[in-house]
Design a protein around this nucleic acid. Structure first.
Lengths: 245, 245, 245, 245
DNA sequence: TATGAATGAGGTTTCATTCAT
DNA sequence: CATGAATGAAACCTCATTCAT
C-alpha cells in the first residue's frame, strides 16, 4: 500500500498522451468518402476549415473574407450562400471547434479507472488537446476579446460544455468516497484550474517566450510543463497521506 | 487542531489585496515636478489612456483610430504626431502596460517576509492585479493573437519582464534554505503556473461564465477563486510536513 | 543646279505627317473579336485612358485617384480592383504608352524606301508622334523625375524599346553601304539625337515659349521646327558630297 | 587655312570643359564669409539650397515641406516666414536656378573668338552646364510638367533668358559675315536645337538608359555624347566648304 | 449552384499651414 | 527671430457585401 502521495512524487510520465484526432484536421464527421456525399457539404466543410485557420490566426476583425475565399476551392459568393455573413461564418467555426473537444472528452471513459489515475488522465488529456489544437485555443481567446458576444448567441455550444463539469464531478466524488481526494473542493473551480494551466501554456506562449527567453514549444519543454501541471493538480486534490517515520 | 502548514489550510483571506495604482489610471511618470511642460506630456498621456482602453477592448485590428481620437481631448492628427502610426500607438500602449505591472511588483518588497508568507503575498498580488487591470490582460491576449509580433519589436518590455523571475527565484531559494519549500522546482515554471491561474480568471471569464453558467465576476466568486489559487500554489511548493500519528 | 544632297537642300516639306492612331485614343488591343467579354475590358480601358491624362497632366504625385475616378464611368473602388494601387495604375499607363509608340514605329516599313528617304521619314514620324502625343512625352518626363524607378520595374517596356534601335541600325547600315551615309556613327547616339530634338519641342515648349516669347505651338512654327530637325539630322548623317568646281 | 570643315571632322576634344561653379553647390553669391553677413540671409539661403534639392528630386507635388525643414538648420516656421508658402519657396528656387545659368553664360565672352570656335565653345558650355547641374534640368522639367505656370508668374526670369538669344544672334551674324556660317538660319531655332540636345542628355538619361541598356553617365559616354552634339550643331550651321580633289 | 464585377462606407495616413509661446 | 504643438482637409486604400449573368 502506498504511503506517499504517489502522484505528486511520481511525475506521471506514464500517463500516455491521449489519442486525439490528428491536429488541425477538422473534418471529423464527414465519415467515409462514400460517393453519395454531395459536393455542397464538402464545399461548406472546406470553407469551414479554411475559415477556422484564418479566424484563429487573425481574430475576428483581423480575418479577411477575401483571404478565406482565396484559400478555398470555391468563390466568395459561396461563403455568403452557406454562412450568410462574416459573423455567421465565425459562429459556425466556433461551434465546430467546441463540439470537437467535448465529443472527444466524452470518449475518455474515466469511470474505468481509479480516481487518482483518472484525474491524471483527464489533466493529461486536457493538456495534450490544447497543445495539439492551438486553433481552438486561439478561437476561444478571440471570443473572450469580444466578451463572449458570439458564444452568447449559440445555445448549442453552451449545452455541450456543461457535460465537462458532470464528468469531473462524478470523478471527484468517487475520489472523495475512496478517501484519496480531500473534500470541500468544487468541480467548477477545479475544472477552471486545469483549464487555466493548460490553456495558458498554448495561449500565452508567445509573450511568455519573449518575456523570459525560453522556448516553450520544444517537446522537452512541453513534457516538463505537462508533468508540472499534472503534479500541481494532483497535489491540490489529493488527501494528505500520513507519512511513515 | 491543524497539523499541517497553515497556508494550505488557512485560506489566506488575511492576505490583504495589494494596493495598486487605481485601475485604468495611467500617468505613472507624471512625477517630474516641472510645471513648465504640461501640455505635450498630457496630450500624449491622454491619448495613451484612451488608446489602452480601445485596444484592450477591440484588439489591434478591431480598434479604430477614429474612435480613439473622438474620446481624446485632441484630434486624430495628434495621434500620428506623437505615435507615428496605429502600430506605434499600440506598441506604446503595450510597453506602458508591461512597465506598470512590473514596477508595482518590484515594490512588493518580498524580502521582508517569511518565504511562505511572501509567496502568498506574491500570488495574491498577481491575482489582484489581474482582476484590477483587465485591460492589461486583454492587451496581452491580443498580443498573443498576433504571435507576439509587436512585443518582439520592443526591447524595453523584454528587459522589464526578466525582473519578475529574479524576484521569484530569490524567494524560492530562501524557502528552500528554510526547509519550507521542496527543492527541484523551477522559478520560470512556477511563475508560469501563477500567471496562468490568475490570467485565466480574467481572460476567459466570458467563455467560462457562459459555458458553465456561473457568474465569476462577483466579489464572492473572486474571493473564493483567489483563495483556491493561493492554496494551489502553496501546496505545489510546500515541503511535505510529516504528520504525527 | 544642285550639286549637293537634296535632303539637306530640300526641306522635306513633302514628307507627309505619318498617320498615327488618333491622339489620346488608347484601345489598341480591342481587336479581339469576341463580343461576349465587353464590360471588364472596357472598364479597365476606360480607367487607363482617364489615368493617362491625369498622370500626364499632373505627374505621379500630383495626380489624384479621386480625380481619375470622377472622370471615369466607374468608381474609385474599381481602380483598385483592376490596378491594385496608384503605382500599379501608373505603371499600366506607362507600359501602355510605350507599347503604342513602338508598335506604330514598327509599322513604318522603312525597308521599302531609299536610306535617305527612310531616315527623313523616320525623323518626321518621330516629330509628328511627339507633337501628336504630348501625354506620352509628359509621362516620360515624369518618369525621369522619378529616376526611372517605375520603368525599372517593368520588364515589358524595356523589351519593347530595344526594337527601335534595331530598326534604326538596319537603316543606317543600308545607308552606309549605299555610300550616302558617312560611317563611324552609332545608332544609339543617333536615336538619342533624334529623340532629343523631337522630345524637347514638346516637353519644354512652356518654359521655352515663356523665355523667348515665341509661340511654338502654332502650325507654322511646328512646321518650321520639323523642317529644321529633319535637316539637322540628315546633315549629321549624310556623306560629304564632293562639289565640282 | 582650313580647307575642311574642321569642326565636323575634328571632334572638338580640345574644347575645354567650361569652368562653372562646382556642381550642386548653390551658394554662389554669398561672397566671402565676412562677419557682417547676418544670419537671416544665411538662413534663407540655407533653406533655398535644401529646397532646390528637394524640388529637383521630387518635383513640386512630390516635395515635402517637412522634409525640407528637417534638412534645414532651422525650423519649418522659418520657411513660411521667408517664403510665405510652398509655392513661394518653389518660385524662389526656380528664379535662383535660372539666374545662375544665365549669369555664367554671360561671362563666356564669345566675342573674343572666331565664330566657329565660339560656337563650339558655346555648345560645349551648354553641355557641360547641363551635366554639372542636373538639379537645374530637373527643375525645368518639373516646371514644364506644370505648363510653366510658376515661370509665368516670374518676370525676372523671363528677362534673364532673353539675353541668351542676343548672344547667340550676334555670334551667328558674325559667322555669316565671315562666310563660315550658312545664312537663312534662325537664332531661336538654333538655340532650341542646342538646348534640346544638351537637356535631353541629362533629363532623359534614366528612361533612355533603361530602354537601351547603356550607361550614359560614365565619363566616357558623356565625352562621346559631347563630341557628337558639338559636331551635329557645327554641321548644321556651317557653310558647305568645297573640298579640293 | 457558381462566378467575376461592382460598390459605398469607412479605415489609416499625409500634408501644407497656423498658433502659442 | 525661432520653435514645438496643433489642425482640417483630403489623400490613398480596404472591407464586407451584392449584383448580373
Amino acid at each position: 500500500m502506498k504511503t506517499r502521495s504517489p502522484a505528486a512524487q511520481t511525475p506521471p510520465a506514464d500517463v500516455q498522451p491521449v489519442a486525439t484526432d490528428n491536429p488541425e484536421d477538422s473534418r471529423p464527421r464527414r465519415g467515409r468518402p462514400s460517393a453519395d456525399r454531395q459536393a455542397p457539404d464538402q464545399t461548406a466543410q472546406n470553407i469551414l476549415e479554411v475559415a477556422t485557420r484564418e479566424f484563429a490566426d487573425k481574430g475576428f476583425s483581423g480575418a479577411r473574407i477575401d483571404a478565406i475565399a482565396e484559400s478555398t476551392r470555391t468563390s466568395k459568393r459561396m461563403i455568403y450562400y452557406y454562412f450568410t455573413s462574416k459573423e455567421g461564418l465565425y459562429l459556425a467555426v466556433l461551434e465546430d471547434a467546441y463540439k470537437r473537444i467535448r465529443s472527444i472528452e466524452s470518449g475518455l471513459n474515466l469511470d474505468g479507472f481509479e480516481p487518482l489515475d483518472a484525474l491524471q488522465r483527464l489533466v493529461a488529456f486536457a493538456f495534450d488537446y490544447h497543445v495539439a489544437h492551438p486553433d481552438f485555443v486561439r478561437l476561444v481567446m478571440n471570443e473572450n476579446i469580444h466578451n463572449g458576444a458570439f458564444l452568447a448567441k449559440s445555445e448549442s455550444i453552451q449545452q455541450v460544455n456543461r457535460s465537462a463539469i458532470d464528468h469531473l464531478n462524478r470523478l471527484y466524488r468517487r475520489g472523495c468516497e475512496a478517501g484519496v481526494f480531500r473534500t470541500g473542493l468544487n468541480a467548477v473551480d477545479l475544472h477552471m484550474s486545469i483549464s487555466a494551466l493548460c490553456f495558458f501554456t498554448v495561449a500565452n506562449r508567445h509573450t511568455f517566450s519573449l518575456s523570459f527567453k525560453r522556448d516553450l514549444s520544444s517537446p522537452k519543454a512541453l513534457a516538463a510543463r505537462r508533468r508540472s501541471i499534472i503534479d500541481m493538480v494532483v497535489r491540490h486534490v489529493q488527501q494528505e497521506v500520513p507519512t511513515p517515520h
